[in-house]
């Protein structure tokens, strides 16, 4: 009987936890939709131009990506140290490739 109560408590705690998790994920989704709309609106309406717009679009994409990795793919949770290391390593290679090809072709 006591055993059952403890497991019920643990169960309730776990349910609350995954509810909170879901709330965070829904907020992430809202933010991603908002960033997408902002990005398309910026290009569609021509309010900002030139390299500032390019940088802004990149920032919006980057923030969206981090929402996806950290919340949707749980990279912020414990037990994801290896996963984070691998993905940040991938970011570093991406940066080098962009830098290398960018310098070769556009400088």
């Amino acid at each position: 009987m006591t055993n059952n109560t403890t497991s019920n408590k643990a169960e309730a705690y776990r349910k609350q936890e995954s509810k909170d998790e879901m709330k965070k994920q829904l907020i992430s989704f809202g933010m991603m939709i908002a960033f997408t709309i902002i990005a398309f609106a910026l290009v569609g309406t021509d309010v900002i131009q030139g390299s500032f717009l390019t940088i802004l679009l990149f920032v919006l994409a980057f923030v969206q990506m981090m929402f996806q990795f950290l919340y949707f793919m749980h990279m912020k949770d414990k037990g994801h140290a290896e996963a984070s290391g691998i993905i940040y390593g991938g970011f570093w290679v991406t940066f080098l490739v962009m830098l290398g090809l960018g310098v070769i072709s556009w400088w």
Partner: peptide, 26 residues
Amino acid sequence: KHLGLWMFLGGETVLFASLFGTYIAL
């Protein structure tokens, strides 16, 4: 499986990085 998929995604990142780099250059 979980770790292996993340390793795969690390490789995918590099693959798409090179494709994006090529696209931007061309």
